[in-house]
Amino acid sequence: MADLKYRPVPHDHEAFLAKARTRKGFSAEFESLELEYQVTRQMLKARSRAGLTQDVVAERMGTTKSAISRLESAGKHAPSLATLKRYASAVGCDLQVKLVPQKLA
């Protein structure tokens, strides 16, 4: 049987972003996807805390590893609340959504 223990891949995200910000248009596009990136970061942290691989989460959700990979890719897929609830349950979490009043400039 395959070893399904989660082993995070080392990644210096700040160095990646610093290099990416030198590309024309990157910063504006990145900022427009901030909410998606926040959700993705939370999903990845929750899966890491649970010590699960994408394979295990997929099995718990009744889907495929590639579907989980797409789900965890910010900006490429807009999951439904039902999907986010299933993901949260699969990684041992509850999903909370809140609306926050906008700050007036």
Rank of each mutant, 00 (worst) to 15 (best):
1 M>S: 13
1 M>F: 05
1 M>K: 04
3 D>Y: 09
5 K>F: 02
7 R>T: 15
9 V>K: 14
10 P>Q: 07
11 H>A: 08
11 H>E: 13
12 D>N: 15
12 D>R: 05
12 D>W: 02
13 H>F: 14
13 H>M: 03
14 E>Q: 11
14 E>A: 10
16 F>T: 02
20 A>E: 14
22 T>G: 01
23 R>H: 12
26 F>Y: 15
27 S>E: 15
28 A>S: 13
32 S>H: 07
33 L>M: 13
33 L>A: 12
34 E>Q: 12
34 E>F: 08
35 L>K: 11
37 Y>K: 10
40 T>F: 00
40 T>V: 15
40 T>S: 14
43 M>C: 10
43 M>N: 02
43 M>Y: 05
44 L>I: 14
44 L>S: 05
45 K>E: 14
45 K>N: 04
45 K>V: 08
46 A>H: 04
47 R>V: 07
47 R>A: 09
48 S>C: 12
48 S>D: 15
49 R>E: 15
49 R>S: 08
49 R>A: 14
50 A>V: 08
50 A>L: 06
50 A>P: 12
51 G>T: 07
51 G>E: 06
52 L>H: 09
52 L>P: 14
53 T>M: 13
53 T>N: 12
54 Q>P: 03
56 V>R: 10
57 V>C: 01
58 A>R: 08
58 A>D: 05
58 A>T: 10
58 A>H: 07
59 E>G: 05
60 R>L: 07
60 R>Q: 02
61 M>H: 02
61 M>E: 04
61 M>R: 04
62 G>Y: 05
63 T>E: 06
64 T>A: 06
64 T>I: 03
64 T>L: 01
65 K>P: 05
65 K>H: 11
65 K>G: 00
67 A>W: 09
68 I>A: 07
68 I>N: 04
68 I>T: 06
68 I>Q: 06
69 S>F: 10
70 R>I: 00
72 E>F: 04
73 S>C: 06
74 A>S: 13
75 G>C: 02
76 K>R: 13
76 K>D: 09
77 H>L: 06
78 A>V: 11
80 S>G: 11
82 A>R: 10
82 A>M: 03
82 A>I: 02
82 A>Y: 03
83 T>N: 07
85 K>A: 04
85 K>I: 00
85 K>H: 04
85 K>V: 00
86 R>E: 11
87 Y>S: 03
87 Y>A: 02
87 Y>Q: 03
88 A>F: 07
88 A>G: 08
89 S>P: 00
89 S>A: 15
92 G>K: 06
93 C>H: 12
95 L>M: 09
96 Q>H: 11
97 V>R: 11
97 V>C: 04
97 V>E: 02
98 K>P: 00
100 V>S: 02
101 P>I: 10
101 P>R: 14
101 P>C: 09
102 Q>M: 15
102 Q>N: 13
102 Q>P: 00
103 K>F: 09
104 L>R: 07
104 L>N: 07
105 A>D: 12
